[in-house]
Design a protein around this nucleic acid. Sequence first.
DNA 1: GGGGGTTTTTACCGATCAGTACAGGATTTA
DNA 2: TAAATCCTGTACTGATCGGTAAAAACCCCC
Lengths: 188, 188
Amino acid sequence: MSRIIAERADVIPALGEIFRRCGYEGASIARITRETGLGKGSLYNFFPGGKEEMAEAVLANIHQWFEENIYRPLETEAPDDALKQMFSGVSSYFRSGERICLVGAFALEETRDRFSSEVTHYFHRWLETLAGCLRRKGYAPSKAKDAASYVIAGIQGAIVLVRATDDAAHFATILKTLKSACDEPRGA
Amino acid sequence: MSRIIAERADVIPALGEIFRRCGYEGASIARITRETGLGKGSLYNFFPGGKEEMAEAVLANIHQWFEENIYRPLETEAPDDALKQMFSGVSSYFRSGERICLVGAFALEETRDRFSSEVTHYFHRWLETLAGCLRRKGYAPSKAKDAASYVIAGIQGAIVLVRATDDAAHFATILKTLKSACDEPRGA
DNA sequence: GGGGGTTTTTACCGATCAGTACAGGATTTA
DNA sequence: TAAATCCTGTACTGATCGGTAAAAACCCCC
C-alpha cells in the first residue's frame, strides 16, 4: 500500500458494497472498519457525521454514476441508442441482479425515511429522463410516463427476483422483454 | 381485553407488520414488546427460538396466504379468472405498494441467507404456478416461464417504486400493463 | 533534525442488543 | 378449596451498538 492508503473518495465504493451486502442497519461500524481496513478514527475523520454521512456519500456517488451513465444519455442521445445504453449499463452495473440496487433496498428498509430525499431524487430523475427519451421516441406524454415507471419497476423487480431465486438468468430475459416492450408500444 | 389476551397465532400478523416496517434487524425485541403489548416472557413463551422463530412463523403465515389465495387459484381455476384474481389479490394485499412484500425485502437484506429456503420457496411456487397457468392459457412452456418471472418481477418492482416515490398510483398502472401483457403475448 | 499540523490508534462511553432466569400471579385440575 | 401447572413481568447477562476523546504516530516543510 502506498503512502496514503486511502482518501475519502477511495473508501466510498467499498462502503457502498458493504451497505449493499448488509443494509444500513446491518452495516455496523465494527464491520466497516474490519472490511475497509480503516480504523474508527480514520472513518470519523473522513465522515464526521458518522454512518449517516457515509451512506449519504455512497448515495451521492451512486447518483452521480447514474447521472453520467444513464440519465444524461437518455437526455442527449438518440432514443434508441440511449435505451440500449441504459439496458446494457444497468445490466453490467447490477451484475445481472447479483449486485443489488442500494437505493431500491433503502426504499424498502426503515432507513427510507432517513434518506427519503435522496431515494426519491434518484427515482424521479430516472423516471423523468426515461419518460423524456420515450417521448422523443414517439410516445405520447402520458404513455411515456407509464412506460418509464413500468420499465424501472421491471428492473428493480428483476433484482429482487434474482436475489430471491439465486438465478441470475432471470435478469437478462426480463430486461430483454422490457426492451422489446419499449420498441413496440402496445395499447393500454 | 379478554381472559387470554393473545394466542400465538394472533401475534403473527402484528409481527409481520413490524418486520415489514423495520426489517429483520431493525425489529428489535424491545420494539416488538412495545408494539405488540406482550412482555418478553410471553414472546419467548410463544417463540422459544426468539426472533428467528418469529420471522419464520411470519414467513410461513405469508406463504400460507399466498398458497390459498394466489397459487391454488392459478393451479385450479380457469387461466383468465386466476390471473384476474392474482392481480386483484396482490393489489389489495400489498395495498397498492404501500405495504411491502416481506419476502422480497428479505431477499434484498442480509437476512436472505438466514431464510433463504423460505424465500426461494415462496418465489419458486409463485413462478411455477403462474407459469403453469400461462401454459394452460396457451403459452409455450419456455415463454410461460419467462412471462411468469417477468410478471412477478414487475409486481415486486412496483412495490419498490411506490415506496421510493411515495406515489401509490404507479402500482395500478404497472399492474394493468402487466395484465394486458399476459393477455396479448408478444414475440420475444 | 526539529516544530506544527494532521492522521490514526486505542481505550472508553452510555445505550441498546438478543436472550435468560426466576419469582410471583393467574388458571386449571382435582 | 388446595395443589399443580402454566403464563408473564422484571431484572439481569454479556455482547455489541454508534460515537467520542486523547494520546501516539506520522508527514511535510523549514
